[in-house]
Nucleic acid binder design. Structure first.
Lengths: 110, 110
DNA sequence: TTTTAGTACTATGTGTTGCAAGGTATTAAA
DNA sequence: TTTAATACCTTGCAACACATAGTACTAAAA
């Protein structure tokens, strides 16, 4: 049971993380560790235990597909790729995100 | 198990709603129904069953206080008011929100 | 060969949040 | 007395992020 600045961020991430991942995969296919890297580079701190289940969820919803690819170092990699359905979902998320940003601005500027 | 554009919005609201309410009460004290009205006016659709527990939670965390006030029409109203601790929390949320907005922009613009 | 380290993916249980649905209490008008 | 309007509250549920732990494959060191 506790707060702190980190919990605030954790709660705000909900729903947004899924949006981030679809956006990343909309640019190019990638495997989980690379996605994690890009999220960290963009200052969105998350951990493996969060990203992997999310990818599986999105794949089960038909938003993503994947293919295996051998790696010279370590086990094979699961390259994820956005589907047509995923692109539609991403379009809705773009709208929803813009709405929320506008909402906050409206409330703040009064 | 469900999708739809509304679910997308519902998920993105998580954590943000708390931020909205603190922001509203930072401007002036208000009772729950009035807060609901302002949220709807700002295009943030929520329902009573979401707002009331949230106000109680924030009050229990010491972010809000309240006082009762008689109404000429209908039952008495519970006017909520932000506390000093609530203002500190709001400050952290301002930062967290700005960070997330920047993160999305970073991912999107690449 | 066996062990160690590094990389990649998976599974389980917990706490927080938003929501649907329904309920209680007060006041004024029909 | 009944109805409608206003205001507040409760319960049970699903989705999400996270901590923690575990599996599997590869290559280099012992």
């Amino acid at each position: 049971m506790e707060n702190g600045a980190e919990n605030v961020r954790s709660q705000m991430r909900k729903g947004v993380l899924e949006y981030c991942i679809l956006s990343i995969l909309d640019k190019k296919e990638a495997y989980a560790s690379a996605i994690l890297e890009e999220l960290k580079a963009a200052n969105m701190i998350v951990v493996e235990g969060t990203v992997y289940p999310l990818l599986i969820r999105q794949k089960n919803q038909g938003l993503l597909s994947y293919r295996w690819e051998e790696s010279t170092q370590g086990p094979p990699r699961k390259y994820y790729c956005i589907t047509e359905k995923g692109r539609q979902q991403l379009g809705e998320m773009d709208l929803a995100w813009q709405e929320i940003v506008d909402t906050i601005r409206t409330i703040k500027e009064k």
